[in-house]
Design a protein around this nucleic acid. Structure first.
Length: 118
DNA sequence: GAGATGACGGGCT
DNA sequence: AAGCCCGCCATCT
């Protein structure tokens, strides 16, 4: 299973109402410096995919932020989806990561990746 | 195989 | 506080 497949597999397992940062996804895959590669992997998702890509956000200190450099969906679209899942954004369109970060146990992550392998 | 690209992140200005 | 720069890596050309 190549890196981008692991990324998609893990992102699909993020529960509604929770988020992961790009670097966080990479960290769970035991490759903490692969944040950019995570973004690259999500970029390959087709429009209308069932993968909850909106749950992967940028990290800005202790705040989560939707700051896309280029993306087919609009920034508002991602924020709207997250609000629908219960996230409360600041006026600055940011939110405290600590309140919504998904924290799966390493064993749980391993199990999720194992399922994806099939 | 070498150079360019990108849904990143941290540090410095 | 907002932006620029640079290092990071998987992929694409």
């Amino acid at each position: 299973m190549i890196f981008s497949e692991q990324v998609i597999c893990l992102v699909r397992a993020i529960p509604a109402g929770h988020v992961l940062t790009y670097g966080g996804v990479a960290a769970h895959l035991e490759k903490p410096r692969h944040a950019r590669a995570v973004g690259y992997a999500l970029n390959q998702l087709p429009f209308g995919t069932d993968v909850p890509w909106q749950r992967v956000v940028g990290k800005h200190g202790d705040q989560g932020k939707i700051s896309l450099r280029s993306f087919s969906y609009s920034r508002d679209e991602q924020i709207a989806r997250l609000k629908a899942e219960g996230l409360a954004f600041n006026p600055l369109q940011r939110f405290p990561l600590a309140d919504y970060l998904w924290r799966p146990a390493p064993a749980e992550v391993a199990a999720i990746l194992a399922e994806g392998t099939d």
